[in-house]
């Protein structure tokens, strides 16, 4: 994954960048399977690696395929790099207090998760705990998610249909001016 991410930084061809993004997404899905999150892996493989790659390719078809070769001024490389290293160092310092990987006594496993694991089979009746939490215990989250997706769809439609109307509109204005000229 790290290699894929680095190659995305280096590449200039946007088509290849988008393809590497898809590979990166698929690799992360494999990692999710390894970490016992099979539902998340399904979603990531279909949505992250599938739909998002298709959307990106669609955008490339409407725009351009090559990234412009920038003139490499030194401050444009080193300033972002320094910012990233500083932020990364601060985050690594933050992890020193984090619970160890796979520790069953970590705080995250003490709060509501035991209840979901022990009682959801009686309260909801689904063998898959992720489903019962998603649809029942945290149903409002899912409602909020649906709202966000709906808003995004409305936004995309407004942005992309507005242009078509304008494209139709502009020629008619010119025609009107031509008519006026002729008159």
């Amino acid at each position: 994954m790290a290699v894929t991410a680095i190659s995305i930084v280096r590449m200039k061809n946007l088509f290849a960048v988008v393809m590497m993004g898809g590979i990166y997404s698929l690799l992360s899905a494999l990692i999710f399977v390894n970490l016992d999150a099979v539902d998340v892996a399904f979603t990531e493989a279909s949505v992250g690696a599938g739909i998002s790659t298709v959307l990106m390719l669609g955008t490339l078809a409407l725009t351009s395929r090559e990234e412009k070769q920038e003139k490499k001024s030194s401050h444009k490389i080193w300033l972002p790099l320094a910012v990233c290293i500083a932020t990364g160092a601060a985050l690594v310092y933050g992890t020193l207090d984090m619970p160890l990987y796979g520790d069953p006594n970590a705080p995250i496993h003490q709060h509501v998760a035991p209840r979901y694991l022990t009682e959801s089979i009686d309260e909801v009746g689904m063998p898959n705990v992720v489903t019962s939490v998603l649809a029942s215990y945290r149903g409002f989250d899912t409602l909020g998610e649906t709202t966000v997706v709906f808003t995004a769809v409305v936004g995309v439609l407004i942005l992309l249909t507005g242009r078509r109307r304008r494209e139709k509109h502009e020629p008619t204005l010119e025609e009107l001016e031509e008519q006026e000229d002729e008159v």
């Binding site: 998340v40 992250g48 955008t59 939490v133 998603l134 899912t142 997706v149 995004a152 992309l160």
Partner: peptide, 27 residues
């Protein structure tokens, strides 16, 4: 299971925001 649920939601929201960003790029 709790992080799994949260991330399922986040993936779908993420694709929605990406789609919005891409349509902005097109415009």
């Amino acid at each position: 299971p709790l992080p799994h649920v949260l991330i399922l939601t986040a993936i779908v929201v993420g694709i929605a925001t990406t789609a919005l960003g891409l349509s902005l790029v097109v415009r």
